[in-house]
Design a protein around this nucleic acid. Sequence first.
DNA 1: CCGACTGTTGCAGTATGTGCAACAGTCATT
DNA 2: AATGACTGTTGCACATACTGCAACAGTCGG
Lengths: 249, 249
Amino acid sequence: MSQTVDRALSILPLLAEGPADLGQVADRLGVHKSTALRLLRTLHEHGLVYRQSDQRYRLGARLFALAQEAMENLDIREIAHPHLLRLNEACGHTVHLAVYEEGEVLYIDKVESRYPVRMYSRIGKPVAITVAAVAKLLLADLPDAERHALADKLDYPLYTARSTPNAPAFLRELEQVREQGWATDLGGHEESINCVAAPVRGTDGRVVAAMSVSAPNVVVTAEELLTLLPQVRRTADAISGEYSGRTPA
Amino acid sequence: MSQTVDRALSILPLLAEGPADLGQVADRLGVHKSTALRLLRTLHEHGLVYRQSDQRYRLGARLFALAQEAMENLDIREIAHPHLLRLNEACGHTVHLAVYEEGEVLYIDKVESRYPVRMYSRIGKPVAITVAAVAKLLLADLPDAERHALADKLDYPLYTARSTPNAPAFLRELEQVREQGWATDLGGHEESINCVAAPVRGTDGRVVAAMSVSAPNVVVTAEELLTLLPQVRRTADAISGEYSGRTPA
DNA sequence: CCGACTGTTGCAGTATGTGCAACAGTCATT
DNA sequence: AATGACTGTTGCACATACTGCAACAGTCGG
């Protein structure tokens, strides 16, 4: 809608791929060097890009700080955190909290496993949306039209033999997840890792977030992990209660 | 330098404080509502702001993803990570990696303590620059003029009785840190937490990053932690060697 | 010393962003 | 149900502020 800002913002994903010099930026934007220079300078002043010693530009520090602050301001995160901690203390495994936002599912909080073998994940990272247990819960609750549209435009990478292969299979699974009110990922993302997840709901019953417990096969089998389901659901319900104001902390 | 972009980017820190509606954004920018609307729309298209159900705007998901990618692209981080892991396995405590960038020091990697009592910190978060051991190392290596200018404009919050109280004291400490080639934070940020840190250097000998081991008093005393210094320095030197190409991994 | 390169500046023209004013919703009040 | 106050949205005329050019500066390599 605003050409100048549009161009400036297009620089960010471009730099996310790796450092670039003025000429490269100008070329990829399809503008004159002097124009690119002025845009980069403005981004620089705001700390969003950084000029490294070889004069090339890369993404800057303020970006982290902004993402950080944004995350801390999510009230669901604040409410949920103590519950996640408690669950982690009880079962020892990695606990995640995730939300859906415009086509992506992101982890917004995490409590690390107390076992030495840990799952790789990072707060802020978009999750593998077609296989993650939390993603299934969040997408299952979208309005029909949106869910179908999204399922169609997703890719279905075959991380493992158990990964969801295509849109129809995914939609079928989402139906089931919605009815049962919980979800799993049994080796669909990484062969040896299983997850059990439950939804956090707002006052109107809509799913606002989802939480999961994950553990590798070498620590507990899938069956053993499934025995934690009631505990996970209780935790999610407790968060829901507090979030919708029914159970003041 | 570019008014439009400047205005648009000013919206981001504003929203970092918390969600705001169109009118509030327009007021704080000092522009007409319609102008603010167009800027917000552009930011929205790029995923940097999100419009929540009550129509208010807040920071969006792409911001996390960008910050994420930016971090993954820091080659020092990639090189250092296995070393940090190894050090963590050897001593069990929390290990941090930090860099300096335009007036701020940020953690860019972290391996959590294997003890139940952990220090709070988060990757991407700016560190307490006047007291953190890693910050001392990074600032001690700045050119004189820049170091003095920075020291002057910093705040010196008294987190504890041992916090650095003012600029002269800070500069004196930085001198010492530079000469000895390592740094500590003994309860300067949180009463019960101590850190030992060592610098990572590039080919030219300049400090490009700093790493630290942190542990609370209840786990090890400050004296015990200091016995880890040689190990921390060896790790930092190993990273330096690899980073400057002397020791190909 | 020269040429090729990248980054930087000042400037004229106009595309582009601006504020206005009028409109469309939504909610609370009477 | 009708009124008013509110917030978000649209189209438009004006001129501001962004663009690309061309000329300059600095750096590297031959």
